[in-house]
Design a protein around this nucleic acid. Structure first.
Length: 161
DNA sequence: GCCAACGTTGGC
DNA sequence: GCCAACGTTGGC
């Protein structure tokens, strides 16, 4: 596969289902259950080594909890073929899988979650997808500048005031 | 628990 | 191919 510069992403998860603590303990995880075409297409663009902002949605508060990385590129999501799975898709054929997943690996857990409202208050992040109103996409591209800004904010936040 | 936003489905 | 209805996401 052709090499390209490392890309950056944001992936959402409900911490009650799978949190940064779970990833820290398990080290890596197959990111199954994505059933949105745009999100799937972004996952298919991912390459090993890409870095991911690990976002806790439907949480109090929601926000970025840490960093993960892509450790395996897109391959078929097995849950689409499992009738008992809540992610089962009867229209998907094994010869032509509709849904993909990537494997993510643990990189870092922030000492403190970086809340969404703090991201929204940062002017240089005003174009970031996750701060847009009604932004529901669970897999999003992030620019290198946005990624660096978020990391810097997470580090600054851990300093004692 | 509410509901706005938005993606998907299906009738026509 | 339009678009209303429906289901889901996710902040609040």
């Amino acid at each position: 596969m052709a090499k390209r510069a490392r890309a950056y992403w944001l992936m959402k998860t409900e911490p009650e289902a799978f949190s940064i603590e779970d990833l820290e303990r398990k080290k890596r995880e197959a990111w199954d259950g994505v059933r949105n075409y745009m999100a799937r297409n972004y996952m298919r663009e991912m390459q090993v080594g890409d870095l991911v902002l690990f976002y806790h949605s439907n949480a109090a508060p929601p926000g970025v909890a840490g960093v993960s990385e892509i450790v395996a590129e897109a391959h078929p999501d097995p849950t689409q073929f499992e009738p008992k799975s809540k992610y089962y898709d009867p229209k998907s054929k094994p010869a032509e899988p509709r849904w993909s997943l990537v494997d993510v690996g643990f990189v870092e857990r922030f000492a403190q979650l970086l809340p969404l409202d703090v991201l929204k208050a940062e002017p240089s992040l005003s174009d970031m997808v996750v701060v847009q109103k009604g932004s529901r996409l669970s897999v999003q591209p992030v620019t290198k500048e946005q990624f660096k800004t978020v990391l810097a904010m997470a580090k600054a936040k851990t300093k004692v005031r």
